[in-house]
Design a protein around this nucleic acid. Structure first.
Lengths: 204, 204
DNA sequence: ACCTGAACACCGTTCAAGT
DNA sequence: ACCTGAACACCGTTCAAGT
């Protein structure tokens, strides 16, 4: 014991991230703990604190992997779409699909808060910006005369609107009844918001 | 000890709910625990489990109180508004204000999940429905020819859209930059969604 | 240098025992 | 009947001690 050198720092980090994702998928967010991750990779908890500052930092890496997968899921959904409206809907519905099939990881993306006001590192924020970038491209085609500010605004409105609909619908917080589903909400949200952008001059 | 009869079941419940709200406001959601609530009201943890089934049920009552306050905050914001669009915006911005000033309680409303698929009791869902009802009234005035389904849909789109913008903006998940704020997002969302409803016949 | 094992200060929940 | 106190099975995090 006490000196194995079986794995490098980086290998242990990667093993821990993979193990955490496995626990998240199989047992849910409530069951994820440093002790379980450690025992899943055959090390003790102490070792985890040798390669990560704390649980927060491990979860940040789990979220980074989730953002990467979400990014490529959206990109492959975009491949078959040609009109910008089709593209925006493909993004929204692949987001909904991702949330449905990777619910634990998807919700960790939002429930995980860095403690005592720490900022996410730049490489993490870059991944988030890349996702918004996927929305900006078709939006720019829909309305080429938008200012940068309006483009940032419209991107975030669509993103947070679709996100809110996914979150509340998947958590049964919307009292939807039988007639309406998350899909219906997203269609209505995108169609009408874009129609509004097209036919209205919004005053500042 | 062991038999005080200082308070009735209902009194202890109410004291616990009030104490939990205090801890939430003063120390944040991470610091809320059964042990802290119990010691704040001068009882042991065991007593808490005599009047609540578990922590979940206590949090449900905390959330019920939060929904009541949110309801009356929105109602008083509505009092000064006359046009339906003004009313919808008053609802949205009082929601944002509430989220900003009661952040811990507001986020508990959404982060609190009943465990193993239990359903919230009917009296709780009634409070949620009452909130949606506040949105339905001005919406019906804006577009009186809406079907029930379309009204349910539009209400939920606005609610979850505004909610998503509040959640992501307050959590700094939107990479907004200097030019755009949560207020700008909400204005854009409501203006354009309503404009879309007004000028477009959405196909099913 | 790398890793462990035990400790510290917490959790939610249960329940025999006391009055 | 009401309430306690201790127990059980967990947490995240730290760090002296071992090789």
């Amino acid at each position: 014991m006490a000196r194995r050198n079986d794995h490098s720092r980086e290998q242990i980090q990667q093993m821990a991230i993979t193990a955490a994702i496995g626990i998240l998928n199989e047992e849910g967010p409530g069951q994820l703990s440093t002790r379980k991750v450690a025992s899943a990779i055959g090390y003790t908890v102490g070792t985890l604190y040798l390669v990560f500052r704390n649980l927060d930092e491990l979860l940040l890496h789990v979220n980074a992997a989730t953002l990467d997968e979400l990014h490529s899921a959206i990109r492959s959904a975009l491949a078959n779409q040609h009109t910008p409206v089709e593209q925006l809907k493909a993004i929204a519905f692949s987001y909904l699909e991702f949330a449905r099939h990777q619910y634990a990881r998807w919700s960790l993306l939002y429930s995980h808060q860095l403690q005592n006001g720490e900022q996410a590192p730049a490489w993490f924020n870059d991944k988030v910006n890349a996702l918004f970038g996927l929305v900006e491209i078709p939006l720019k085609t829909v309305k080429p005369d938008m200012s940068h500010k309006d483009l940032v605004c419209a991107t975030r409105v669509l993103w947070s609107g679709v996100h809110g609909a996914c979150e509340l619908a998947l958590n049964n917080k919307l009292r939807l009844g039988d007639e309406v589903s998350a899909d219906v909400l997203i269609h209505s949200m995108i169609d009408n918001y874009l129609a509004g952008l097209a036919c209205e001059q919004v005053t500042a």
